[in-house]
Simulated assay, not measured.
Amino acid sequence: MIETARLAGFFTAHGIWCVSEGETLVPLIGYLHADGEYGMDRLMYDDYAEGVRAGQDALADGDPSWIGAVLVADGYVHLDQGKTDALIVEAVQYGPYRQSVQLAVPYRTADDPRGFAVHKPKFMNADCDDPEFDALAEAFFVGTTSHTEAHEVWEAHLDESV
């Protein structure tokens, strides 16, 4: 699950980079091949929810060439502060048995008077045998730093108060 957590970090950082300028993220699915190469598809549909459903179906079906895949979509999460914009991330590792993890990365939009901000990821609905969630979190952050341009945006706008 470590490789898939890195994959999730990479594509979540890409998503943060996209929303940092005020746009809604087109749902994207990123995937890892056995040779270590990443691939990505944007799920452009007339209806946003239809794009997300297509991504969820792709995760559920998988692809024989994928070791892991991640769906990143724009949405909301409910926190103590109320309904908050967030990237919703679903990651699946394929193999003899599937493992998955879901997390949200809350953010403050660019049109907020305080400006754009990225908040701490919130791990949710983890379904994996690896009890070492610290290792998964570390791998996720290694993935975010591997997307150099996006990581610069993330770090420049990090607000860990949420």
Rank of each mutant, 00 (worst) to 15 (best):
K122L: 07
R108D: 11
V101N: 09
A86V: 09
D74I: 02
V118E: 01
D80R: 07
T145C: 06
Q81H: 13
D74A: 09
I29N: 09
L79C: 09
M124Q: 11
V142G: 06
E138H: 05
E21K: 15
Y107Q: 11
Y38D: 14
P121W: 00
D61G: 14
V19F: 03
G22T: 11
V19T: 08
L59R: 08
D74Y: 04
A54T: 12
V70I: 10
A49P: 04
F140V: 03
K122E: 05
M44T: 12
A110I: 07
G51S: 01
P131Y: 07
H14K: 14
V118P: 01
H33A: 04
W66C: 02
V105S: 01
C18T: 15
T148Y: 14
D47L: 12
L25P: 08
G95N: 00
I67E: 12
V105F: 03
A54M: 15
T24C: 09
L136V: 06
P27D: 11
A104P: 02
R53P: 03
Q56T: 05
L71H: 02
F116A: 06
P96H: 07
A137W: 14
Q93H: 15
S146L: 12
V101K: 02
E23Q: 08
V89A: 03
L32S: 03
F141L: 03
M124F: 07
A126W: 02
A104M: 01
G55N: 09
Q56F: 10
D134A: 05
G55P: 04
S20N: 08
E50C: 08
T24R: 13
K83D: 08
T24W: 10
S65R: 05
G51C: 01
V72G: 04
Q81G: 05
